[in-house]
Amino acid sequence: MPLPTSALDFGIFNDRRYPLPEVSAMTETINVNINGTTYSHDVEPRLLLIHYLREVVGLTGPHIGCETSLCGACTVELSGKAVKSCAVFAIQCDGAKILTIEGMAANGKLHKIQEAFWNEHGLQCGFCTPGMIMTTKQILDRNPNPSDQEIRHGLEGNLCRCTGYQHIVNAVKAAAKAAGA
């Protein structure tokens, strides 16, 4: 192992910085309604919806777990349907209505699905959870009383490495029950 370098090597008051060049990329304006609020932003066409939500709007609830749209951590609701926001360009969403995990609780009250994930221990590290909850919403919107098999089939597009899915399945069932009650 070579000797560790000293902090002084870096020049503590060194102001040697690279010049900051101008960044110019073609942008277009989009208007989007997210969780009930309307936003207007100039975006590069290649900006992915997930990066738009996280970096531009500041909604960091949806997560990025892969780049092949196979993990589902980035799932949000776009025009009433669950989609993987890592496989949609923000520019495609001009004029659309988007719901993210941050918009699920209303008036200071958790959504029944959130409540169910909490009660049933449907999460551990929590990274997949926003996507799981948004997909669960889609499952229950279409089928208010799903069987275990239908739940598992419905969650096919969402990976979780912590829970083994069992408590998630319980949470979806509990949410269905709570919604029916």
Binding site: T75, A82, V83, K84, Q138
Partner: peptide
């Protein structure tokens, strides 16, 4: 095909 989210898009 795929999964719920993929079939939606």
């Amino acid at each position: 095909i795929g999964d719920v989210q993929v079939r939606n898009m």
